[in-house]
Nucleic acid binder design. Structure first.
Lengths: 234, 234
DNA sequence: GCCGGAGATTGGTTTGACCACTGATACGCG
DNA sequence: CGCGTATCAGTGGTCAAACCAATCTCCGGC
């Protein structure tokens, strides 16, 4: 016989709502019944129902607005993959290296695709970020422009899922660790040169060169992390 | 002035624990204080504290064992990226296509790496899965072996983060959608042939061929989905 | 017709009680 | 003495009933 009442009521509620979502019974943006009603319908207490809602909220599928109600999010990759970022936040050691290695696969692919799609306005924005980076004083500031530089490229690749994953792979926490180390070694010039290479490839609409330049760029980060494992443990 | 006490107490608790994790104050496998104690320490009610714990649980960061206590997970990619799978479960339409496109980038890279690392035992396991797939009756059964086939390769690539992402990208829900459609068109033979190509490349330890064969394989899926958009809406 | 405020609605938070599972301790049997 | 078992304290799981704090709605006055 079926023998597993071992699941908590909250877990069942979570599964229940996910199923409604997968089946299309709940559409993006749609409003759900109130907590009290949901609890009654699923036959559990409001407390437990709230736990389920909270879980789905952090997953990015639901959004609770105080006083207004509970809504299904747009269910776009960006919403759903936000939690992905925690892996970059709480990981250390070897896992951080693995993170970079995945980025080394994705970022070049994104750059290659972007090479064929980035328009003049995009190139202009890239130049702006590059200049801002060179002019930046604080490490914090430089990291911000670095992130933006890569995000523009990622966005131009036109794949929201890819964009969200790369975004997560580059959590501020993670990025800050690397750049803090960079600052101690004055490797900024080399990094700026790598960005220049990427930009040049994009400007000449050359996917292969863009792919290569991006790979070189990320490899530099990977190498640095390999040589400075202690940076992964802070 | 700082002006946003608009964050819920639960959100603060979540952040608090994540910070303790990032700083190393909480180590993998470690046991946390009881819910009651935690609630008191952070100055909130047990209900709210439980919501925070539930949230961290679904993120794969904490694990609550009934009667035993709350523990930090091993914090390995597999644990943390489990939620990632929801995107594959609740997404539809264009997003599903974007999902496959990301897989088209990652899977070939994984196959190429695996070509240099897969040992004889691994090859043997691949042959087993291939045979089982051909012999499979139900779609359900075939999907299972298909998944296992790819998982063996991914595992051989030796990057847990990459493995976890690909695992998520291939949620059973998602995979079932495709194969259900495949069954209607009898494209199994072609798929089997693609697997044969991948296997041959791996056996001859040829990264480039493996990369190519995997790309072809995933492209076939992508093409099929492009031609059958209605499959994405079930 | 527009504006503002009172009241209803709904999520946010707290409290306290009880249930269900786990693990360790102490007991009793062989 | 050794081992199995019964007991029980500790801990997470669930429920209930309030009250608080945003938000929305609708009605009345200007």
């Amino acid at each position: 016989m079926a023998e597993e009442p071992r699941v908590t009521v909250t877990a069942r509620a979570i599964e229940h709502i996910k199923t409604m979502l997968a089946s299309g019974e709940l559409a993006p943006g749609q409003r759900l019944p109130t907590e009290r009603v949901l609890a009654a319908e699923l036959g559990l207490s409001r407390s437990s129902m709230r736990e389920a809602i909270r879980a789905l909220t952090v997953m990015g599928v639901l959004e609770a607005r105080h006083g207004a109600g509970i809504y299904v999010t747009r269910l776009e990759p960006g919403d759903l993959l936000e939690t992905f970022g925690v892996v970059a936040e709480v990981s250390r050691g070897e896992t951080l290296l693995d993170l970079v290695r995945v980025r080394k696969i994705l970022e070049p692919a994104a750059a290659a695709t972007a090479a064929a799609r980035l328009d003049d306005a995009g190139l202009e924005r890239l130049r702006t970020e590059m200049a801002a980076m060179r002019a930046g004083d604080t490490s914090e500031e430089i990291v911000g422009h670095d992130l933006e530089f890569h995000r523009i490229i990622t966005e131009a690749a036109g794949n929201p899922v890819l964009g969200a994953i790369l975004e997560a792979l580059n959590g501020r926490t993670f990025r800050a660790r690397v750049w803090r180390g960079y600052a101690d070694e004055n490797v900024f010039p080399q990094t700026f040169a790598e960005h220049d290479r990427i930009y040049a490839a994009l400007e000449s609409r050359d996917p292969e060169s863009a792919h290569l330049a991006a790979a070189v760029h990320i490899s530099a980060v990977e190498d640095w992390m390999s040589r400075n494992p202690e940076a992964a443990d802070r």
